[in-house]
């Protein structure tokens, strides 16, 4: 299962879901689905999110059980 810290990073940048959605050209609902882990974004959207949140994509998304990100 794909885990993420979009919500944490978004809060760090003081962005709302709508703000982030606008930056990566998706709806606020899609950002909410990603944060809840309900939906795994495409590679393109993952890269766009990482760029908008100024982090490496591996820091934003990781597979469940990945020791580096789980700690």
């Amino acid at each position: 299962m794909l885990k993420n810290r979009v919500k944490e990073m978004r809060a760090r940048h003081s962005l709302t879901q709508s703000d982030l959605g606008k930056q990566v050209d998706v709806t606020r609902q899609t950002i909410a689905f990603i944060e809840k882990g309900e939906f795994s974004p495409s590679i393109t959207l993952s890269l766009k999110l990482a760029k908008a949140l100024q982090v490496d994509v591996n820091e934003l998304f990781w597979l469940e059980g990945d020791e580096y990100n789980e700690k």
Partner: peptide, 9 residues
Amino acid sequence: EQDEGMTYI
């Protein structure tokens, strides 16, 4: 179908 999240639901 505005984006991939909405297409998913």
